[in-house]
Amino acid sequence: MLGRSANGIFWLFRYLERAENTARLIEAGFRMALTRDSKDASDEWRSVVITLGQQAAFEAKHGTDYTGPHVFNFVLRDKDNPGAVLAMVEQARSSARSVRTGITREVWETVNDTWMILREMLARPITETRLGDVLDTIRRQSTQLRGALEGTMLRNEIYNFARLGTFIERADNTARILDVKYYVLLPSLSYVGSSLDNVQWENVLRSLAGERAYRWLNAGRMEAKGIAEFLILDGRFPRSLAYCYAKLQSNMAQLAREYGHEAASHEILRDTCTRLHTLSIESVLEQGLHQFIADFIAVNTRLALEIQRDYRFIE
């Protein structure tokens, strides 16, 4: 497979996963902001922007005016924001067009429909009354795309590169949300273990679509340690770090069989999977959650870059 095609597939699914994750994060921020006073609501919206890595770009345009409409319009549709959802979907469509012969008609049509639907929905400023419909549409289109991929694509190298893009992006998103939780959402360390802390952890679960699963497994108990363990080490939850890396390992193993050899990226992945399998939540918290997450994000970024080198992606 040409490196250019592999690059197109990889980034097509990274962009689409990122768009869905952004929508989920905005929804969680909106829920929290509705229950807070104006200052605390501003802090919630600020945490959304920081998690997305868009603080500098946002403040260059809006200063520190972290109101809901400013944030969700900037993150979803602002033409000056290359990380906006609309821009990401446009980039995904461009990537899909470049690999049109490598994907099925159903996958292409879903990507193209997503772009046309969101282009129309995001053509004018979003109000709070319209926000729910926009976020529902992003999530629904993402679900349809996953269905098209799983239901129509051959399990070959194209499928494997698609999955690599999805799970590298998903792992990065989960890690960043966990990290921001301690350093932005809580006013100070004195709040750890308080009722506010528990509400914030519930918000983390909502932004990762894990609230119902966690409550089902834990009889409704909200405990910071248990939630951290669930999101980092529970291989049953499809947005946990352990689950994402198990899937990456499976798809990388299939690529190794197709190409007849392993490369440096396989070694990075194997080391990270071994570490996740042998870790306990106690050792994570003893090391420090922030330090653990910072190390994980660095390794995840390194893995993505190494995959691009190993398989000769062309930018």
Rank of each mutant, 00 (worst) to 15 (best):
G3L: 07
A6D: 01
W11G: 06
F13K: 13
L16I: 12
A19R: 07
E20V: 05
E20T: 02
N21W: 04
A23V: 02
R24S: 09
L25H: 08
A28E: 00
A28T: 02
F30M: 15
R31N: 00
L34I: 11
E44H: 05
V48D: 04
G53L: 11
Q55S: 07
A56V: 12
E59T: 12
A60Y: 14
A60K: 15
H62R: 13
H62A: 09
Y66W: 13
F72L: 01
L76S: 08
D80K: 13
A84D: 03
A84E: 00
S94H: 13
S98Q: 14
T104Y: 04
E106M: 00
V107H: 06
T110M: 11
W115G: 01
M116N: 10
M116Y: 10
I117Q: 07
L118F: 10
R119H: 12
I126P: 01
E128K: 03
V134L: 00
V134K: 00
V134H: 02
R140C: 13
Q141A: 12
A148Q: 01
A148R: 04
E150D: 14
F161G: 06
A162G: 15
L164T: 01
G165R: 07
T166P: 04
F167E: 03
F167M: 13
R170Q: 09
I177Q: 09
L178R: 06
V180N: 06
K181V: 03
Y183R: 15
S188Q: 03
L196V: 06
N198A: 15
Q200F: 12
L208D: 08
G210L: 05
G210Y: 11
A213I: 07
W216R: 12
L217M: 11
G220D: 10
A228S: 07
F230R: 01
L233W: 04
D234W: 12
D234K: 14
G235H: 04
S240H: 05
L241G: 00
L241W: 02
Y243A: 03
Q249H: 15
N251P: 01
A253K: 14
Q254V: 15
G260W: 09
G260K: 03
E262R: 13
S265E: 03
R270T: 11
T272E: 11
T278F: 02
L279S: 04
S280C: 06
I281D: 04
L285R: 15
E286N: 15
A294Y: 00
D295T: 14
D295A: 12
N300C: 03
L305S: 11
